[in-house]
Amino acid sequence: MLVDCSTEDKFQFSITCEECGKVWKSPAIVFSKARIPPATEGKKIVYATIYGREKKNAQMKALKAGEKSFSRCPICHRWVCDDCFMVCEDLDMCGQCAEKLNEKGSIVGKI
């Protein structure tokens, strides 16, 4: 679901709506040791470990934030954005599935 868009200096992830292709990007989180070159080979290993840890945390945050913006269709199991997800009477589902199953409902993204 999450796509890694991180660089050496920042961590960022994106989710793409599997119906309309709309991309959602998580807020970029700067690496704490960005622009600080490791003085030794040892430091380089240390920084690499810190980078891995901070990236994992950033990924968890991005997933949490993304989950609030995307819904998973219970029929086709795709992750879709609010503009492609419908609130129906019996079961919420994506617009494509609703059309196929002839279910009526309202789009979440439409006010």
Binding site: S69, R72, C81, D82, V87, S106
Partner: peptide
């Protein structure tokens, strides 16, 4: 609820309103 139900917050809010 969004995490538990695999739906977005906006979906939850829409249901809440109803």
């Amino acid at each position: 609820i969004p995490t538990a139900a695999c739906i977005s917050m906006s979906t939850v809010k829409k249901h809440n309103g109803n």
